[in-house]
Structure formats: structure tokens, C-alpha cells
Amino acid sequence: MGNTALNVAKIMDRLHQSSRRPRYAYMVLSLLAEQADQGGKVGPSIIDDDKERLTLRDYVSKRLAKLSGYRDRRRQLEQRVRAELAGKLPQDLFEAQAIVDRHVEERARQTSAANFSRVLTELEKAGFVNRFYQGYRTNHANRGAQRHLVCVLDGDVSAALRSRDRFI
């Protein structure tokens, strides 16, 4: 980044200048820093708290999907899903609700994945992250599969965010 010491306040200032959604960008950057190895590399896959192996994009989407809708927006999405599935839902109310919840969660994750891509571009422009893809036509363990996103955090950014990895 440069020769000046970087701290969370400076990261937030730069995000405020370079991002349309600085709070969301900070959350994404924090998630990346939390999963980064010592060299700042994150991805192509992450083992989630549920012991599930996810791609980087899916991991961030899963984490941020819960924040994607305030109660009213989530309720509106649920109503739209119910209207689309009208006549296809089972009679059992618990089963029907479980199906609707899965559809709502999937849509929230898709929206979150699209938002993640936009924010990642902003983080790149700010100089906090570099991204590349591993996969098809690349020598590594996932050769032959699809290309998967890998991010490398700037060392100063990673150090600043890791110094505050515990909330009090």
C-alpha cells in the first residue's frame, strides 16, 4: 500500500472515498481477511463452520445473505415466492414453509453473489485486493474443473484487520 502504517480508520476512510457501499465493502473485506492465509491469499475454496466446502463467492454470499434483507424486504420476497409456487406447495404447512424458505434463501444468496462481485471490483480499485482465477487450464489441484475466484489481500490491509480479529 505504501510506507504509511495502515489501520482500520484509514481503511474505512478509503472505502468511504472509493465505494458506493462502504459498510458492505468493509464487511466483505473483513470476511476475506478472516479467511486469508499468512500470505493474504483467500480461496479458491473455504471450509465453512458447518464443515461444508464452499467456493469463495459462495462462502461470502452465504455469510452476507442473512443481512441482505430487512424484515420487510424478506417478507416481500417470501410473498413473491409463494405467488410463484402457488398450487405447487404441499398441503402440510411446515413442509410448504420449508420449501419457501429454501427458495428465499437461494434468491438472497444469488443477490449477495452479484453484490459481492461489484464490491470486489471496488476493493480492487481501492488497492486492497487483487483477484485471479484458478481452475480450467491452470495447474493446481482443481485442474479440469471450472474457474474459481481467488483473492489476495494487501499485506497492510490484512495486518490491520487481523489485529482486531476479536470483538469485545
Rank of each mutant, 00 (worst) to 15 (best):
A65D: 06
R74C: 01
R82F: 02
N130Q: 15
Q91R: 15
L54E: 09
R109V: 01
E124H: 13
Q76Y: 07
R21V: 02
R23K: 13
E106T: 01
V81N: 06
E95G: 02
G135T: 05
T111S: 09
Q91F: 12
V8R: 09
R21D: 06
D48E: 12
P90W: 01
R109A: 00
N139Q: 07
I46F: 13
R71C: 00
D72K: 12
Q91W: 14
K10P: 05
A25W: 11
S45W: 15
R20P: 05
T4G: 04
L15A: 00
A5M: 15
S45C: 12
S45F: 15
I99E: 01
Q17T: 03
E78F: 04
S30P: 10
N142W: 14
R57P: 08
S61A: 13
L77R: 09
S18P: 04
D72P: 06
D49W: 15
H140L: 03
Y24Q: 02
L149W: 09
R75P: 07
R107L: 02
L120M: 07
Q91S: 08
V60E: 06
L56Q: 06
A36N: 08
V100D: 00
L6R: 08
N139F: 10
H140P: 04
G127N: 15
L64Q: 03
Y136H: 10
M27N: 08
F116C: 02
Q110H: 06
V129I: 05
D72G: 00
R147N: 07
V150G: 01
R63Q: 12
R147G: 01
R20Y: 04
F116L: 04
A145T: 14
G43N: 09
A9E: 14
A9S: 09
E105N: 11
I11T: 04
R53L: 10
S68E: 09
R80T: 03
A36E: 09
L29A: 07
S68Y: 13
V100N: 00
S30C: 08
D50C: 06
Q134G: 05
N142T: 05
A83C: 02
G43W: 14
N139C: 00
A25Q: 07
R20I: 00
F128Q: 09
Q146M: 11
L85P: 08
S117R: 14
L15V: 01
R71T: 04
R57F: 08
I46D: 05
R107N: 03
P90Y: 03
Q79C: 01
A83Y: 12
G87A: 04
K125R: 14
H16N: 10
T4M: 13
A126R: 11
R107Y: 10
A114I: 14
T55V: 01
